[in-house]
Computed example of a mutant assay.
Amino acid sequence: MKRHGPPGSPPATLLPHLVDGKGRKPSIQVIEYDKDHFEERNITDVSELAAHLDNRKVTWINIDGLGDVEALTLLGTKFNLHPLALEDVLNTGQRPKVEQAPDYLFIVAQMVYQDKIKTICGEQVSLFLGKNFLITVQEEGEFDVFDPIRERLRSGGGLARKLKSDYLAYALLDSIIDHYYPVLEEIGNAIEELEDDLLERPSREMVITLHEYKRSLTQLRRFVWPLRDVVNGLLHDASGFISTPTKVYLRDCYDHTVQLMDLVESYKELTSGLMELYHSSVGLRTNEVMRVLTVITSIFIPLTFIVGVYGMNFAPEGHNGEKLPLNMPELYQPHGYIGVMAVMAAIAIIQLIIFKKMKWL
């Protein structure tokens, strides 16, 4: 959900991100590395950063928590971060974007992942990419999708330790994008199971579930579509913050965003098709019920007519004993009741045979 400052507040108004009414004190992790060295530490105060920065190495500063405005303000002062960019960091729910500043690139992305109980979660990640540093700011930090990157940096595997901060920014964006796949796969599998159930036993609860999936896919589309533009903007960056070797990897990242867009659109079309399938299934079942009821009604119409005629009970004789003409002599036949019932049964059987031949049953 996007957060805003009070209406009419001045630009660059920094408001703490509150969780349950409390501002969470940020935890700060600093990783410094080059081809031959790696160092990782946790600090408690932004003011300690200056003592650890080494311009000959790549410095990754990861901040979890947005409850301390003073810490972010101090961070902005040390790295010359624009107050409007810091405002976007605190006002979560921003549209993914990339903005160029004299000393850095400001990148906003929406991170989506599944927690321990497979609940789909998401939060905003803000990145400040400089020549020798990368600052990432997350909302919570309890979960993120960067652990594989940290492990590669610790082990020295791949190119992570050999290239500069722009490659690290690519690796983090690539991890964010790749974690959309399992989320979409989970939704896709659930939709396929729902499709089978819709064919067998459609219900109102399924429609509610379909609407939830459609709303989730709409939200994912709002994240992925501008994220594709972000990667494309980094591909065509002319500021010098993105090197040519890194742009080669960004092309692959761009392909992934296009694939994600195709998946999101495909699943959205599938949910719309399932909604139509639900209405068709309900209409088909209603038609079957109406057909059965119509057949039953058709059978009972002549039977009801016969019963109604014989229920009139006209007397065959007058008060003086004289016989009345054109009356109902069957009323006093010894086997009249059995005969009428037999005629009614024969009519019903004949109708059933006719309906069966006409394939109405």
Rank of each mutant, 00 (worst) to 15 (best):
V69E: 12
K214Q: 15
T257N: 02
G339C: 09
L235Q: 14
L163S: 05
H52Y: 11
P316V: 09
M341Y: 00
I61M: 07
E276C: 09
V340Y: 08
V112N: 13
I28H: 03
G311F: 11
N55T: 08
E276A: 12
Q124L: 03
P16M: 09
I187K: 01
K131W: 02
R221N: 11
I296S: 00
N55L: 14
V307K: 09
D237T: 07
F146K: 07
Y180T: 14
K214G: 03
L263D: 01
S165L: 02
Y337D: 14
L227G: 12
A51Q: 15
S243V: 10
L49M: 01
T286S: 08
E265G: 12
G188R: 10
L220F: 14
D255L: 06
V58P: 04
E186G: 04
L260E: 14
D166E: 03
A171T: 13
R24H: 11
Y310L: 14
P16Y: 07
L227I: 08
T218P: 03
S239T: 01
A190M: 08
L75C: 13
L75W: 15
L163A: 08
V343A: 10
R41H: 14
N320K: 12
L326C: 01
E123G: 05
E70Q: 15
R228T: 03
L81A: 11
E32Y: 02
D174I: 09
K25I: 13
G336V: 04
K323V: 11
Y249H: 07
N313R: 14
F128I: 08
L172G: 07
R3S: 00
I296M: 10
I135Y: 05
I177P: 11
K214V: 02
Y33A: 04
D68A: 02
K357G: 05
P182C: 10
I149Q: 11
H82V: 14
V58K: 05
T297G: 00
S272T: 04
Q110E: 09
A109S: 06
T44V: 00
Y170G: 03
L293Q: 09
M328Y: 01
K162Y: 03
T218M: 11
L227C: 03
V89T: 14
Y33D: 04
M344T: 09
I338P: 00
F38K: 06
V30L: 15
R154H: 05
F223C: 15
M206E: 12
L331N: 11
K162I: 06
G8A: 12
Y213S: 13
D64L: 13
Y249R: 04
R285F: 02
I31H: 02
G188E: 13
D262I: 03
H4T: 13
F133C: 01
E123V: 00
T77A: 15
L277C: 08
L260I: 15
T73R: 15
G93T: 01
R251E: 13
Q114T: 00
M290T: 11
N80G: 11
L86G: 06
R215G: 00
E269C: 01
E142R: 05
V89Y: 04
T271A: 05
P202K: 08
